[in-house]
Design a protein around this nucleic acid. Structure first.
Lengths: 226, 226
DNA sequence: CGGGTATGCATACCACGTATGCAGTGCCTC
DNA sequence: GAGGCACTGCATACGTGGTATGCATACCCG
């Protein structure tokens, strides 16, 4: 089970320099017609309901890179002094390819919480139990906020539909995270018992497998709240 | 009239420029004792089981920044010519603060798949149904890979324990993603039906909601053997 | 009514952190 | 001495947040 660090290096460069989801999203939005930078940000945030606020500066630098790569084309102005951008045929093709290619799960994105916990259990002097409890509390607060936001959703607008789907993804992720935290808790308890059993000094008789109850209700479809 | 770009007032900067999980992780690893750069990468990847390969170059640049901020201290060499780093008291305090502060879920990390799908449903000419099916297939393949890896896990080593927890987090996330994709599918189908009903002759007649079933088993702990 | 100020839109640029690749150095082995 | 490996450092590109600038509109006040 040893992983030699040097062996992972070689390989194709799938996405050099980050997720690039913003780049592709802006390009895809231009399929609806020419737009200018500020408008693109507004359209992006309208679809995600402001869940992931997009910095305006990134829009312009991304557009410059897209123009450099020949995926978009800049037109002087539309009469109002706005710098308009339109997708080139190559850009349209790139959008089609993006939608046709699934998000690679072979090299999953960095999960800050998972990394943090993996480090915590291997570094001495860390109260992992307290860490888990605190994180679960924070995640549950976020979950309540999502539920509150979902009550204000309308279903007739397609942009609102996109936002509710994004919101549902947040709910699913948060619920999954809480379940994982519960899982880690029982797992760590069991490991501690095993370690105590191996220690001959002052052997304590532990109770057989402890299985605490989960803190969330078993799966619940987030769409059912209406 | 000239704008001097340097010396801009820095307000309360929470996490400027990204998650910073690598920075904190390397600092925390130094709590176990002085290490050099290459060794730090190996320790990080051993704990995460090579799930998130860490570029060596990033280790050194991160160490340089940590030294600049007074969180680590560089010592000439350990007799072998290695450039050793050790955590300063300020660094140890920073580690404690990191473990005491839960990961902020108020501004969740960018989810590439959620963004992609939100854009897809609002851009004309995209076969969202095919997209979802393809993504589900890819995620299920990853899920099988995780299950395969978990069969090779040992439980006696604490580092292995950390890795299995990371692996479980991937399993939980993948299962959650599949459930979300199912949810999106039924949601979109319902929206399409609603749209078709409105199209022929603007007969405004709200109907009762339908509650479809999920295609994956209700929650199941990945820790159990399948 | 005219001028000053606030506000919002729109573009551009800068600073810092993350992330990857590659160049370079010293050591060991064949 | 050529090549491989451990090890370090740098150049580059991109994400992210912030700020300066120009312009138009709205608002307040003497």
């Amino acid at each position: 089970m040893v992983c030699i660090p040097g062996m992972v290096a070689s390989g194709g460069h799938e996405n050099p320099g980050g997720p690039m989801s913003v780049r592709h999203s802006l390009l895809a939005l231009l399929e609806e017609g020419p737009m200018y930078g500020y408008q693109l940000r507004a359209e992006f945030e309208r679809r995600t309901g402001g869940t992931w606020p997009l910095n305006v500066g990134q829009v312009y630098s991304t557009l410059a890179r897209l123009e450099r790569d020949g995926l978009v084309e800049a037109r002087g102005d539309d009469g109002e002094g706005h710098r308009m951008y339109a997708a080139t045929p190559a850009g349209t093709a790139a959008v089609g390819e993006w939608f046709a290619t699934p998000v690679a799960r072979s090299q999953p994105a960095r999960d800050e919480l998972a990394i943090k916990l993996a480090v915590a259990v291997t570094v001495p002097g860390v109260d992992v139990g307290a860490m888990i409890q605190q994180q679960r509390s924070a995640t549950m607060t976020a979950l309540q906020e999502y539920t509150r936001l979902k009550a204000r959703a309308a279903v007739d607008d397609p942009a609102e539909l996109a936002w509710t789907l994004v919101l549902d993804s947040l709910v699913f992720a948060a619920e999954s995270e809480i379940r994982w935290l519960d899982h880690c808790e029982t797992r760590l308890r069991r490991a501690e018992i095993d370690r105590a059993r191996r220690t001959p000094s002052s052997s304590v008789e532990p109770s057989s497998s402890v299985e605490p109850s989960s803190s969330v209700e078993p799966v619940e479809t987030p769409g059912g709240a209406r």
